[in-house]
Design a protein around this nucleic acid. Structure first.
Lengths: 204, 204
DNA sequence: CTGAAAATTAACCAAATGGTTAAATAACAA
DNA sequence: TTGTTATTTAACCATTTGGTTAATTTTCAG
Protein backbone atom coordinates (compact mmCIF):
# COMPACT_ATOMS: atom_id res chain seq x y z
CA UNK A 1 0.00 0.00 0.00
CA UNK A 2 2.77 2.38 0.94
CA UNK A 3 5.06 3.55 -1.86
CA UNK A 4 8.01 2.75 0.43
CA UNK A 5 7.17 -0.98 0.54
CA UNK A 6 10.13 -1.81 -1.57
CA UNK A 7 10.66 -4.93 0.43
CA UNK A 8 8.92 -6.78 3.21
CA UNK A 9 11.82 -6.70 5.60
CA UNK A 10 11.93 -2.93 5.68
CA UNK A 11 8.15 -2.73 6.08
CA UNK A 12 8.37 -4.97 9.13
CA UNK A 13 11.16 -2.92 10.64
CA UNK A 14 9.19 0.28 10.18
CA UNK A 15 6.09 -1.24 11.70
CA UNK A 16 8.07 -2.71 14.57
CA UNK A 17 9.76 0.59 15.31
CA UNK A 18 6.42 2.30 15.47
CA UNK A 19 4.91 -0.34 17.71
CA UNK A 20 7.85 -0.75 20.07
CA UNK A 21 8.43 2.96 20.50
CA UNK A 22 4.79 3.59 21.23
CA UNK A 23 4.13 0.61 23.47
CA UNK A 24 7.47 -0.79 24.58
CA UNK A 25 8.65 -4.36 24.43
CA UNK A 26 5.96 -5.71 26.73
CA UNK A 27 3.10 -3.68 25.29
CA UNK A 28 3.72 -4.13 21.58
CA UNK A 29 1.95 -6.99 19.79
CA UNK A 30 3.37 -9.09 17.01
CA UNK A 31 -0.05 -9.09 15.37
CA UNK A 32 -0.13 -5.29 15.35
CA UNK A 33 3.29 -5.20 13.76
CA UNK A 34 2.16 -7.64 11.08
CA UNK A 35 -1.03 -5.66 10.44
CA UNK A 36 0.83 -2.37 10.25
CA UNK A 37 3.27 -3.92 7.78
CA UNK A 38 0.34 -5.36 5.82
CA UNK A 39 1.47 -8.97 6.08
CA UNK A 40 0.85 -12.20 7.92
CA UNK A 41 2.15 -12.59 11.44
CA UNK A 42 4.08 -15.73 10.59
CA UNK A 43 6.07 -13.72 8.09
CA UNK A 44 7.40 -11.54 10.86
CA UNK A 45 8.83 -14.64 12.49
CA UNK A 46 10.06 -15.84 9.13
CA UNK A 47 12.24 -12.74 8.83
CA UNK A 48 13.15 -12.01 12.43
CA UNK A 49 12.64 -15.21 14.44
CA UNK A 50 11.38 -13.85 17.73
CA UNK A 51 9.97 -10.71 19.27
CA UNK A 52 13.15 -10.25 21.32
CA UNK A 53 15.41 -10.47 18.27
CA UNK A 54 13.31 -7.94 16.40
CA UNK A 55 13.23 -5.67 19.39
CA UNK A 56 16.97 -5.89 19.77
CA UNK A 57 17.46 -4.60 16.24
CA UNK A 58 15.12 -1.65 16.70
CA UNK A 59 16.65 -0.77 20.03
CA UNK A 60 20.15 -0.82 18.60
CA UNK A 61 19.17 1.56 15.81
CA UNK A 62 17.45 3.99 18.14
CA UNK A 63 20.24 3.92 20.68
CA UNK A 64 22.77 4.70 17.99
CA UNK A 65 20.69 7.66 16.85
CA UNK A 66 20.78 9.05 20.36
CA UNK A 67 24.55 9.17 20.61
CA UNK A 68 25.87 8.94 17.07
CA UNK A 69 27.03 12.45 16.45
CA UNK A 70 27.73 13.31 20.08
CA UNK A 71 31.17 11.73 20.13
CA UNK A 72 32.52 13.68 17.17
CA UNK A 73 31.47 17.00 18.69
CA UNK A 74 32.90 16.13 22.11
CA UNK A 75 36.29 15.37 20.63
CA UNK A 76 36.33 18.14 18.02
CA UNK A 77 39.05 20.77 18.11
CA UNK A 78 36.84 23.79 18.80
CA UNK A 79 36.34 26.12 21.77
CA UNK A 80 34.39 24.71 24.72
CA UNK A 81 31.53 27.16 24.43
CA UNK A 82 31.16 26.33 20.76
CA UNK A 83 31.17 22.67 21.69
CA UNK A 84 28.32 23.22 24.09
CA UNK A 85 26.36 25.17 21.52
CA UNK A 86 26.83 22.46 18.94
CA UNK A 87 25.84 19.66 21.27
CA UNK A 88 22.69 21.46 22.32
CA UNK A 89 21.56 22.36 18.83
CA UNK A 90 22.44 18.92 17.53
CA UNK A 91 20.59 17.21 20.37
CA UNK A 92 17.45 19.27 20.17
CA UNK A 93 17.48 19.06 16.39
CA UNK A 94 17.58 15.27 16.40
CA UNK A 95 15.16 14.96 19.29
CA UNK A 96 12.73 17.11 17.37
CA UNK A 97 12.89 14.58 14.57
CA UNK A 98 12.43 11.55 16.84
CA UNK A 99 10.65 12.86 19.91
CA UNK A 100 9.61 9.48 21.27
CA UNK A 101 13.01 7.89 20.96
CA UNK A 102 14.70 8.91 24.22
CA UNK A 103 11.89 7.70 26.46
CA UNK A 104 11.86 4.44 24.54
CA UNK A 105 15.60 3.97 24.95
CA UNK A 106 15.66 4.95 28.60
CA UNK A 107 12.72 2.76 29.35
CA UNK A 108 14.06 -0.37 27.83
CA UNK A 109 17.49 0.10 29.35
CA UNK A 110 15.78 0.35 32.71
CA UNK A 111 13.78 -2.76 32.03
CA UNK A 112 16.83 -4.67 30.92
CA UNK A 113 20.15 -3.01 31.80
CA UNK A 114 22.15 -5.96 30.49
CA UNK A 115 21.13 -5.25 26.91
CA UNK A 116 22.88 -1.92 26.63
CA UNK A 117 26.24 -3.28 27.72
CA UNK A 118 26.73 -5.18 24.47
CA UNK A 119 25.55 -2.29 22.30
CA UNK A 120 27.80 0.22 23.99
CA UNK A 121 31.05 -1.71 23.83
CA UNK A 122 31.98 -0.88 20.28
CA UNK A 123 31.56 2.83 20.98
CA UNK A 124 34.76 4.17 22.45
CA UNK A 125 33.05 5.98 25.29
CA UNK A 126 36.01 5.99 27.61
CA UNK A 127 38.29 7.70 25.15
CA UNK A 128 35.72 10.33 24.19
CA UNK A 129 35.07 11.18 27.82
CA UNK A 130 38.77 11.45 28.59
CA UNK A 131 39.31 13.92 25.80
CA UNK A 132 36.35 16.00 26.87
CA UNK A 133 37.48 15.82 30.50
CA UNK A 134 40.88 17.18 29.50
CA UNK A 135 39.27 20.04 27.63
CA UNK A 136 37.15 20.98 30.62
CA UNK A 137 40.04 20.71 33.09
CA UNK A 138 42.12 22.90 30.84
CA UNK A 139 39.51 25.64 30.75
CA UNK A 140 39.18 25.50 34.52
CA UNK A 141 42.94 25.89 34.96
CA UNK A 142 42.93 28.83 32.56
CA UNK A 143 40.34 30.41 34.80
CA UNK A 144 37.74 30.58 32.04
CA UNK A 145 35.10 28.44 33.71
CA UNK A 146 34.11 27.43 37.21
CA UNK A 147 35.15 24.16 38.75
CA UNK A 148 32.99 21.30 37.45
CA UNK A 149 33.60 17.74 36.33
CA UNK A 150 33.08 16.84 32.70
CA UNK A 151 30.67 14.18 33.89
CA UNK A 152 28.43 16.65 35.72
CA UNK A 153 28.60 19.10 32.85
CA UNK A 154 27.60 16.45 30.34
CA UNK A 155 24.78 15.25 32.55
CA UNK A 156 23.55 18.82 32.86
CA UNK A 157 23.63 19.33 29.12
CA UNK A 158 21.81 16.12 28.37
CA UNK A 159 19.30 16.69 31.16
CA UNK A 160 18.37 20.10 29.78
CA UNK A 161 18.11 18.79 26.23
CA UNK A 162 16.50 15.39 26.65
CA UNK A 163 14.19 15.77 29.62
CA UNK A 164 11.69 18.11 27.95
CA UNK A 165 11.17 15.43 25.30
CA UNK A 166 11.00 12.54 27.71
CA UNK A 167 8.45 14.35 29.82
CA UNK A 168 6.53 15.90 26.94
CA UNK A 169 3.03 14.67 27.82
CA UNK A 170 3.58 15.48 31.48
CA UNK A 171 4.77 19.00 30.72
CA UNK A 172 1.92 19.55 28.31
CA UNK A 173 -0.57 18.61 31.00
CA UNK A 174 1.00 20.60 33.81
CA UNK A 175 1.55 23.77 31.82
CA UNK A 176 -1.68 23.32 29.87
CA UNK A 177 0.12 23.57 26.54
CA UNK A 178 -1.34 22.73 23.16
CA UNK A 179 0.91 21.01 20.65
CA UNK A 180 1.84 24.36 19.12
CA UNK A 181 2.67 25.80 22.54
CA UNK A 182 4.91 22.86 23.20
CA UNK A 183 6.70 23.37 19.92
CA UNK A 184 7.35 27.04 20.50
CA UNK A 185 8.65 26.16 23.95
CA UNK A 186 11.12 23.71 22.39
CA UNK A 187 12.05 26.21 19.69
CA UNK A 188 12.86 28.70 22.38
CA UNK A 189 15.02 26.20 24.20
CA UNK A 190 17.05 25.63 21.08
CA UNK A 191 18.24 29.22 21.49
CA UNK A 192 18.31 29.56 25.24
CA UNK A 193 19.65 26.31 26.67
CA UNK A 194 23.19 26.70 25.37
CA UNK A 195 23.60 30.18 26.82
CA UNK A 196 21.97 29.03 30.04
CA UNK A 197 24.71 26.43 30.40
CA UNK A 198 27.51 28.74 29.35
CA UNK A 199 26.35 31.43 31.77
CA UNK A 200 26.24 28.81 34.50
CA UNK A 201 29.89 27.85 34.13
CA UNK A 202 31.66 30.95 32.85
CA UNK A 203 33.67 33.18 35.14
CA UNK A 204 33.25 36.94 35.03
CA UNK B 1 5.16 -12.96 56.40
CA UNK B 2 6.16 -9.31 56.61
CA UNK B 3 5.71 -7.58 59.97
CA UNK B 4 3.89 -4.79 58.13
CA UNK B 5 1.10 -7.11 56.94
CA UNK B 6 -1.33 -5.50 59.28
CA UNK B 7 -4.07 -5.87 56.71
CA UNK B 8 -4.51 -7.45 53.33
CA UNK B 9 -5.43 -4.28 51.53
CA UNK B 10 -2.16 -2.59 52.42
CA UNK B 11 -0.18 -5.69 51.47
CA UNK B 12 -1.78 -5.67 48.03
CA UNK B 13 -1.05 -1.99 47.55
CA UNK B 14 2.59 -2.46 48.48
CA UNK B 15 2.94 -5.42 46.15
CA UNK B 16 1.15 -3.59 43.35
CA UNK B 17 3.34 -0.51 43.73
CA UNK B 18 6.43 -2.66 43.45
CA UNK B 19 5.15 -4.54 40.42
CA UNK B 20 3.76 -1.55 38.53
CA UNK B 21 6.79 0.65 39.13
CA UNK B 22 9.16 -2.07 38.01
CA UNK B 23 7.19 -3.34 35.03
CA UNK B 24 4.59 -0.75 34.14
CA UNK B 25 0.88 -1.27 33.59
CA UNK B 26 1.30 -3.62 30.64
CA UNK B 27 4.22 -5.60 32.07
CA UNK B 28 2.98 -6.18 35.60
CA UNK B 29 1.05 -9.40 36.33
CA UNK B 30 -1.86 -9.75 38.69
CA UNK B 31 -0.50 -13.15 39.71
CA UNK B 32 2.84 -11.61 40.68
CA UNK B 33 1.07 -9.00 42.76
CA UNK B 34 -0.92 -11.71 44.52
CA UNK B 35 2.20 -13.81 45.12
CA UNK B 36 4.17 -10.85 46.42
CA UNK B 37 1.32 -10.00 48.77
CA UNK B 38 1.13 -13.66 49.81
CA UNK B 39 -2.51 -14.14 48.87
CA UNK B 40 -4.78 -15.57 46.21
CA UNK B 41 -5.18 -13.71 42.95
CA UNK B 42 -8.95 -13.55 43.28
CA UNK B 43 -8.49 -11.60 46.47
CA UNK B 44 -6.79 -8.82 44.59
CA UNK B 45 -9.92 -8.47 42.47
CA UNK B 46 -12.05 -8.74 45.59
CA UNK B 47 -10.39 -5.63 47.01
CA UNK B 48 -9.62 -3.61 43.89
CA UNK B 49 -11.88 -4.92 41.10
CA UNK B 50 -9.62 -4.61 38.08
CA UNK B 51 -6.01 -4.13 37.17
CA UNK B 52 -6.79 -0.66 35.83
CA UNK B 53 -8.48 0.45 39.03
CA UNK B 54 -5.58 -0.77 41.12
CA UNK B 55 -3.13 0.88 38.80
CA UNK B 56 -5.03 4.14 38.99
CA UNK B 57 -4.63 4.22 42.76
CA UNK B 58 -0.91 3.55 42.67
CA UNK B 59 -0.37 6.09 39.94
CA UNK B 60 -2.26 8.76 41.83
CA UNK B 61 -0.15 8.23 44.92
CA UNK B 62 3.13 8.34 43.02
CA UNK B 63 2.14 11.38 41.00
CA UNK B 64 1.23 13.23 44.17
CA UNK B 65 4.62 12.39 45.66
CA UNK B 66 6.31 13.95 42.66
CA UNK B 67 4.67 17.35 43.04
CA UNK B 68 3.31 17.49 46.57
CA UNK B 69 5.71 19.88 48.21
CA UNK B 70 6.67 21.77 45.07
CA UNK B 71 3.68 24.09 45.15
CA UNK B 72 4.30 25.35 48.67
CA UNK B 73 7.90 26.24 47.88
CA UNK B 74 6.99 27.97 44.62
CA UNK B 75 4.51 30.22 46.37
CA UNK B 76 6.51 30.78 49.56
CA UNK B 77 7.53 34.30 50.53
CA UNK B 78 11.29 33.83 50.28
CA UNK B 79 14.01 35.14 47.94
CA UNK B 80 14.16 33.58 44.48
CA UNK B 81 17.58 32.04 44.94
CA UNK B 82 16.48 30.47 48.18
CA UNK B 83 13.42 29.16 46.40
CA UNK B 84 15.61 27.49 43.79
CA UNK B 85 17.85 26.00 46.45
CA UNK B 86 14.88 24.60 48.30
CA UNK B 87 13.25 23.13 45.22
CA UNK B 88 16.46 21.42 44.19
CA UNK B 89 17.25 19.95 47.58
CA UNK B 90 13.63 18.92 48.09
CA UNK B 91 13.47 17.30 44.65
CA UNK B 92 16.71 15.39 44.90
CA UNK B 93 15.93 14.38 48.46
CA UNK B 94 12.60 12.88 47.51
CA UNK B 95 13.89 11.35 44.30
CA UNK B 96 16.62 9.68 46.32
CA UNK B 97 13.91 8.04 48.38
CA UNK B 98 11.85 6.93 45.39
CA UNK B 99 14.28 6.68 42.50
CA UNK B 100 12.04 4.66 40.20
CA UNK B 101 9.02 6.87 40.61
CA UNK B 102 9.60 9.59 38.00
CA UNK B 103 10.20 7.18 35.13
CA UNK B 104 7.09 5.30 36.14
CA UNK B 105 4.99 8.45 36.23
CA UNK B 106 6.38 9.82 32.99
CA UNK B 107 5.96 6.51 31.28
CA UNK B 108 2.38 5.98 32.15
CA UNK B 109 1.40 9.54 31.35
CA UNK B 110 2.94 9.01 27.93
CA UNK B 111 1.06 5.76 27.50
CA UNK B 112 -2.20 7.34 28.53
CA UNK B 113 -2.19 11.14 28.64
CA UNK B 114 -5.88 11.29 29.46
CA UNK B 115 -5.33 9.80 32.89
CA UNK B 116 -3.32 12.67 34.28
CA UNK B 117 -5.92 15.27 33.41
CA UNK B 118 -8.27 14.09 36.14
CA UNK B 119 -5.52 13.77 38.73
CA UNK B 120 -4.14 17.22 38.07
CA UNK B 121 -7.38 19.16 38.24
CA UNK B 122 -7.62 19.42 41.98
CA UNK B 123 -4.09 20.84 42.18
CA UNK B 124 -4.21 24.55 41.61
CA UNK B 125 -1.41 24.55 39.07
CA UNK B 126 -2.46 27.70 37.29
CA UNK B 127 -2.41 29.82 40.42
CA UNK B 128 0.94 28.45 41.60
CA UNK B 129 2.53 29.16 38.26
CA UNK B 130 1.14 32.68 38.14
CA UNK B 131 2.63 33.51 41.52
CA UNK B 132 5.98 32.10 40.54
CA UNK B 133 5.86 33.92 37.20
CA UNK B 134 5.28 37.21 39.04
CA UNK B 135 8.24 36.54 41.29
CA UNK B 136 10.50 35.85 38.32
CA UNK B 137 9.29 38.87 36.34
CA UNK B 138 9.87 41.08 39.35
CA UNK B 139 13.48 39.92 39.73
CA UNK B 140 14.08 40.52 36.04
CA UNK B 141 12.71 44.07 36.29
CA UNK B 142 14.91 44.71 39.31
CA UNK B 143 17.86 43.69 37.16
CA UNK B 144 18.81 40.82 39.43
CA UNK B 145 18.43 38.02 36.91
CA UNK B 146 18.55 37.60 33.17
CA UNK B 147 15.44 37.50 31.04
CA UNK B 148 13.79 34.09 31.26
CA UNK B 149 10.22 32.82 31.52
CA UNK B 150 9.14 31.08 34.70
CA UNK B 151 8.15 28.16 32.53
CA UNK B 152 11.62 27.71 31.05
CA UNK B 153 13.23 28.18 34.43
CA UNK B 154 11.02 25.56 36.01
CA UNK B 155 11.63 23.14 33.18
CA UNK B 156 15.36 23.67 33.58
CA UNK B 157 15.21 23.03 37.31
CA UNK B 158 13.15 19.90 36.93
CA UNK B 159 15.26 18.66 34.04
CA UNK B 160 18.45 18.95 36.05
CA UNK B 161 16.90 17.28 39.08
CA UNK B 162 14.76 14.54 37.58
CA UNK B 163 16.63 13.44 34.48
CA UNK B 164 19.59 11.84 36.29
CA UNK B 165 17.11 9.59 38.08
CA UNK B 166 15.03 8.82 35.03
CA UNK B 167 18.13 7.90 33.07
CA UNK B 168 19.93 6.17 35.93
CA UNK B 169 20.67 2.81 34.23
CA UNK B 170 21.67 4.57 31.03
CA UNK B 171 24.04 6.92 32.81
CA UNK B 172 25.50 4.08 34.84
CA UNK B 173 26.27 2.19 31.65
CA UNK B 174 27.68 5.10 29.69
CA UNK B 175 29.86 6.44 32.48
CA UNK B 176 30.70 2.96 33.73
CA UNK B 177 29.56 3.78 37.25
CA UNK B 178 28.99 1.32 40.06
CA UNK B 179 26.07 1.89 42.37
CA UNK B 180 28.33 3.74 44.80
CA UNK B 181 29.69 5.94 42.01
CA UNK B 182 26.19 6.80 40.99
CA UNK B 183 25.29 7.74 44.53
CA UNK B 184 28.26 10.03 44.99
CA UNK B 185 27.42 11.66 41.67
CA UNK B 186 23.89 12.34 42.93
CA UNK B 187 25.21 13.54 46.28
CA UNK B 188 27.40 16.00 44.46
CA UNK B 189 24.49 17.25 42.41
CA UNK B 190 22.56 17.99 45.58
CA UNK B 191 25.18 20.67 46.27
CA UNK B 192 26.02 21.81 42.76
CA UNK B 193 22.77 21.94 40.78
CA UNK B 194 21.24 24.87 42.66
CA UNK B 195 24.31 27.06 42.21
CA UNK B 196 24.56 25.95 38.59
CA UNK B 197 21.06 27.31 38.01
CA UNK B 198 21.61 30.46 40.02
CA UNK B 199 24.86 31.19 38.21
CA UNK B 200 23.04 30.68 34.92
CA UNK B 201 20.44 33.35 35.59
CA UNK B 202 22.10 35.88 37.85
CA UNK B 203 23.43 39.17 36.54
CA UNK B 204 26.89 40.40 37.52
C1' DC C 1 7.80 -24.04 -19.55
C1' DT C 2 9.31 -26.29 -15.43
C1' DG C 3 10.71 -27.22 -11.07
C1' DA C 4 13.05 -25.98 -7.08
C1' DA C 5 13.70 -22.34 -3.80
C1' DA C 6 11.89 -18.32 -1.54
C1' DA C 7 8.03 -15.83 0.17
C1' DT C 8 3.53 -15.84 2.15
C1' DT C 9 -0.53 -17.49 4.36
C1' DA C 10 -4.31 -19.93 7.08
C1' DA C 11 -4.92 -22.70 10.71
C1' DC C 12 -3.30 -24.11 14.86
C1' DC C 13 -1.15 -24.66 19.59
C1' DA C 14 0.41 -24.16 24.25
C1' DA C 15 1.13 -20.91 27.66
C1' DA C 16 -0.09 -16.88 29.97
C1' DT C 17 -3.36 -13.55 31.52
C1' DG C 18 -7.25 -10.85 33.50
C1' DG C 19 -11.18 -12.02 35.44
C1' DT C 20 -15.21 -15.02 37.53
C1' DT C 21 -17.61 -18.36 40.45
C1' DA C 22 -18.87 -21.22 43.88
C1' DA C 23 -17.34 -23.27 47.78
C1' DA C 24 -14.73 -23.01 52.16
C1' DT C 25 -13.11 -20.63 56.11
C1' DA C 26 -12.80 -16.94 59.60
C1' DA C 27 -14.96 -13.42 62.33
C1' DC C 28 -18.21 -12.10 65.19
C1' DA C 29 -22.74 -10.41 66.82
C1' DA C 30 -26.89 -12.26 69.08
C1' DT D 1 -23.70 -22.09 70.07
C1' DT D 2 -25.57 -20.39 65.88
C1' DG D 3 -26.40 -17.90 62.05
C1' DT D 4 -24.89 -14.22 59.22
C1' DT D 5 -21.43 -11.62 57.00
C1' DA D 6 -16.79 -10.74 55.44
C1' DT D 7 -12.62 -12.89 53.85
C1' DT D 8 -10.07 -16.21 51.25
C1' DT D 9 -9.28 -19.87 48.12
C1' DA D 10 -9.24 -23.50 44.31
C1' DA D 11 -10.86 -24.33 40.08
C1' DC D 12 -12.35 -22.39 35.93
C1' DC D 13 -13.07 -19.61 31.71
C1' DA D 14 -12.50 -16.78 27.65
C1' DT D 15 -9.18 -14.21 25.39
C1' DT D 16 -4.81 -12.92 24.04
C1' DT D 17 -0.23 -13.82 22.77
C1' DG D 18 4.14 -15.48 20.88
C1' DG D 19 5.25 -18.94 18.12
C1' DT D 20 4.83 -23.18 14.78
C1' DT D 21 3.42 -26.04 10.81
C1' DA D 22 2.02 -27.44 6.66
C1' DA D 23 0.20 -25.99 2.67
C1' DT D 24 -0.09 -22.36 -1.07
C1' DT D 25 1.63 -18.87 -4.01
C1' DT D 26 5.34 -16.31 -6.13
C1' DT D 27 9.86 -15.97 -8.13
C1' DC D 28 13.07 -17.03 -11.23
C1' DA D 29 17.08 -19.69 -13.01
C1' DG D 30 17.81 -23.28 -16.52
Amino acid sequence: MRPKDKNTEEAILQAARKAFIRKGLAGARMQDIADEAGINKALVHYYFESKEKLFGLIFGQEFAKLFSSLASVLTADIPLYEKIEQIVSLDIERLGQFPDMPLFVINEISRNPAMIVKRIKHLDVKNVLEIFQKHVTQEIKKGNIKNITAEQLLINIQSLCIFPFVAKPMLKSIFKMKETDYHSMIKRRKKEVASFIIDAIKIG
